[in-house]
């Protein structure tokens, strides 16, 4: 029994060690589908890319601006379900969420979020007809800037301006009013 236990431990530990050490292989080669699924489900995936490049965002704000049938603007927070204001600096997971949803690759999450926003706005105020999501980012280094040719830090030193404001507006989208079907 003791020998069997020892064999099982050595086998398990060897498999785990091989998986862990594969994290150092060049490019961390992709596993087969079933192995990737197993690694993801057991949490033993090896992807440790914390701060592997510069953080570019100095400040992120997300606002929801809705228009009523009279043409008046109303501002709401971007949180759901209650349209509460969110603070991405204080609450880091909101930063991750909105940064990932509103950058390329985040469409799958963005589309249903915007639909859910439309429903929440309709519930909050049946007079609202359309809305847009305003993403305001103060960045020290816009994604579109080529790294090699622009020593942005030198520009910052010269003109004293730390950030560049980038505004993106998503919308307008219709407000889903349950009463109107």
């Amino acid at each position: 029994m003791k020998t069997l236990c020892g064999i099982l431990i050595v086998a398990f530990a060897s498999l785990c060690a091989a998986n862990i050490l594969s994290g150092l292989a060049t490019g961390n080669p992709p596993a087969t589908d079933w192995l990737a699924a197993l690694r993801r489900t057991t949490g033993v995936e090896q992807n440790w890319s914390m701060f592997h490049t510069i953080p570019r965002v100095h400040r992120l704000r997300v606002r929801v601006i809705a228009m009523d049938s009279g043409g008046n603007e109303h501002e709401f927070g971007a949180g759901l379900p209650g349209l509460e204001k969110i603070h991405p600096r204080e609450k880091i997971r909101y930063y991750y969420t909105f940064e990932r949803m509103f950058t390329p690759g985040g469409e799958d999450y963005r589309k249903p979020y915007i639909k859910a926003l439309g429903r929440a706005l309709g519930k909050k105020n049946p007079q609202l007809v359309e809305f847009s999501v305003h993403l305001e980012i103060d960045t020290t280094h816009p994604q579109t800037t080529r790294q090699e040719i622009t020593r942005l830090l030198e520009h910052i030193r010269k003109d004293g301006k730390l950030t560049i404001e980038q505004r993106s507006v998503f919308g307008p989208f219709p407000v889903k009013n349950d009463a109107a079907g």
Partner: peptide, 16 residues
């Protein structure tokens, strides 16, 4: 690039 040039921590300290 930014780790190679040593710029990383400056950008980090300017970030949110």
């Amino acid at each position: 690039y930014y780790w190679q040039t040593g710029d990383f921590l400056t950008y980090f300290m300017l970030s949110h």
